[in-house]
Every structure is written in C-alpha cells, then in structure tokens.
C-alpha cells in the first residue's frame, strides 16, 4: 500500500478559503452554481427588493411592456401556492406568450418548478397543496373544480428533469398518449411515432430499433424520446422542467437546437438553472426569487438592459 507523503494533506485547506474578498463582477454571466455569499451578507441597501422579499413584504414585479403586447396563451393571475402551511408562491401574475419560448430562471428553491407544475396541475398529486388566484389557458381557468385534470394534462406536454422513459419499446413510449386515448389504428400510430421522433430529432438514430426498449438509449436520447412523447399528443403548451440538467454538453446542445426548431409550433415554458441556456433558447425570461416574480421581459432586454439592479446582479452572478 502506498502512502501519501504526510506533509501534503494538511496544507491544502488553506489555499481555497472563503475569507478572500469577493472578486469584482465578471463581465459575462456565469453559472449560478458558483455560490456567492447570501445577499444580506454582502451589501444590502435597506431598500433592496431582495431585502424586502426576505422580510416578507409584497413587491411589485417589473414586467416589460413588450410582453404585454404579445398574445397570451397562459396567464397567471395573482397565483399563490402553499405546501401545507409553507407558502411557496406569492401572488404571481404574468402572461406567457403564444408560440414563444419563455424561460423561468432564478436561484434554487425560488418556485420555478412549482410554478411550472401548477400549469398542468401535477402539484395536485401532493396531498397538502393548496392554491389561490387563477391560471388561465386561452382565457379559461384551469384551476376550477369543474376542470377535468386529465383533459387539461392532455393539452400539455411535459418533460422532466431526469429522463423518464417508460419500461416499454421506443415505439410504445412515443405513442403512449395515443394509447391512453384508446387509439388502435396501427397506421396512425406509426405516423405519429415517426412525426414525433422526427420532431424530437431522434428518428434517424432509432428508426431501425423502434421495438427495442426505451431504457436502452443514452441519457440524451432518452430525454429526446421524452420530448417526442410530450409532443406526440400535439399539446398546446410544452412544459420543460430543467430538461438538460442531467445531460452532457453535446446532448444539451441537441436539445437546445430542438427547442429552437419547436419554437413557433408550440408555446414552450422552460425552467432552467443555466442562464446561458435561457439566453440562447428563450424569447422571454422571467426571473423569480423566493416565490416571487422579480422581473419579466424579452430575453435580450433581461440579459442586456434589465430594469432592476437585482436582475443585473443575478445574471452577472452576484447573487443566487
């Protein structure tokens, strides 16, 4: 057994210590993962929105006019949500543009995914969830008691953080929404399968092994298979919940290309941690913080000329 030279080990902790003063802001946005200290530790002007949010005060979200001019497919109207007694979303109101890609960004735990999962009411699966306000799809409320959740979900497609193909063949995976509707027409199923797989840019890779298990694909392929499944039912809205967080850069690039191609055809809401990704793929970007919407506007404006200094801090990596 070889032993490490004894002197080497104890010296290491000293080199990367947190006491070093904070570097000035990077000129480019950098991934949120490089954790800076909490906002109130650094330089909190007493009037800062972040500070007020932390104190639980209501704040007015900054919504750019360009957004309001768009045709809205989805509208959040003073939407609040509680997990048991803990409130997760605070009075969120904003429209989502039809046929565009809208990105939800914000630090971990800010409620992005909760907001996304509210759109197809996946939160209903949790017993203790309770909400107020309204969400409207094409002007109709989706939260009422009379709304059929199953019907609602059929109008949405959803892709999750981790690829979750079903334990069946690739073909069956893709046509699963049709199977649920009871479609047995083989020709139709084949057509939809090909169309969806082409739509998800996976057709060429799997066309010869449609009847092999979907679990045998690579991670990126599995995620594109899930996207194919999500678009097989021709949804009105496509919900992507951090679709690339479990993928390598090449697979990520493929998914991003795919989102670019799907733009216009579907209204897409994408939750992402990766601000570069948000800037690359989205038309509009909403920044959330601790369950509140901070700023919402065209992506180019958010990333280059944000109205709020806090937004600038976040996208430049000064908090979050």
């Amino acid at each position: 057994m070889t032993q490490q030279p004894p002197a080497a080990v104890p010296q290491s902790p000293a080199s990367t210590d947190g006491d070093v003063p904070q570097q000035p802001a990077f000129s480019q946005p950098r991934p949120a993962a490089a954790k800076p200290p909490l906002p109130d530790e650094t330089r909190p002007p007493a009037t800062s929105r972040l500070h007020r949010i932390a104190l639980g005060e209501p704040i007015q979200a900054e919504i750019h006019d360009a957004v309001l001019r768009e045709d809205a497919v989805l509208e959040f109207d003073h939407f609040s949500l509680w997990y048991g007694s803990k409130q997760a979303l605070f009075d969120v109101s904003f429209p989502v543009a039809r046929g565009k890609v809208t990105a939800l960004i914000g630090p971990s735990g800010c409620g992005k995914s909760t907001l996304l999962r509210s759109i197809n009411r996946m939160n209903d699966l949790i017993d203790s969830v309770r909400y107020e306000g309204d969400i409207r799809l094409n002007g109709e409320s989706i939260l009422g008691r009379q709304v059929d959740v199953i019907e609602l979900r059929k109008r949405m497609g959803m892709v999750f953080q981790k690829p979750n193909p079903f334990p069946m063949s690739i073909f069956e995976n893709v046509v699963y929404p049709l199977r649920i509707d009871g479609i047995r027409n083989r020709r139709l199923l084949k057509e939809v399968c090909e169309q969806s797989l082409r739509g998800a840019a996976l057709w060429d890779e799997v066309k010869d092994r449609l009847h092999e298990s979907g679990l045998g694909l690579s991670g990126g392929q599995q995620q594109r298979l899930c996207i194919a499944r999500a678009i097989a039912g021709a949804p009105e809205v496509l919900l992507l919940d951090e679709p690339c967080s479990a993928l390598d850069p090449i697979a990520t690039a493929k998914i991003e290309d795919l989102i670019n191609e799907l733009r216009g055809e579907y209204s897409i809401v994408i939750v992402t941690h990766n601000m570069q990704q948000a800037s690359r793929v989205s038309d509009y970007t909403a920044l959330m913080y601790l369950g509140r919407l901070l700023e919402y506007g065209p992506t180019s404006d958010i990333f280059t000329r944000p109205h709020l200094p806090e937004t600038n801090d976040y996208i430049t990596g000064r908090f979050g």
Binding site: N120, M122, L125, I150, E151, R153, K154, M156, G157, M158, F160, K162, N164, P165, F166, P167, M168, Y176, P177, R179, I180, C226, R229, A230, G233
Partner: peptide, 27 residues
C-alpha cells in the same frame, strides 16, 4: 417503481388506473 415514471405517465394525461395498469404493474 420510481415516482418519475408515474409522473411521466400522469403528465401524458393518463388516469391513475391507466398509469397503474400500463406503467406501475408491468414494472
């Protein structure tokens, strides 16, 4: 049976019984 599979099926618009029959039971 992983929760993600159930959610994937439910998100496709499957009812709970459809999810059980198509995804949960085979798995």
């Amino acid at each position: 049976v992983p929760r993600s599979m159930r959610e994937g099926s439910l998100a496709c618009g499957a009812t709970q019984w459809q999810t059980i029959r198509n995804i949960v039971l085979p798995r």
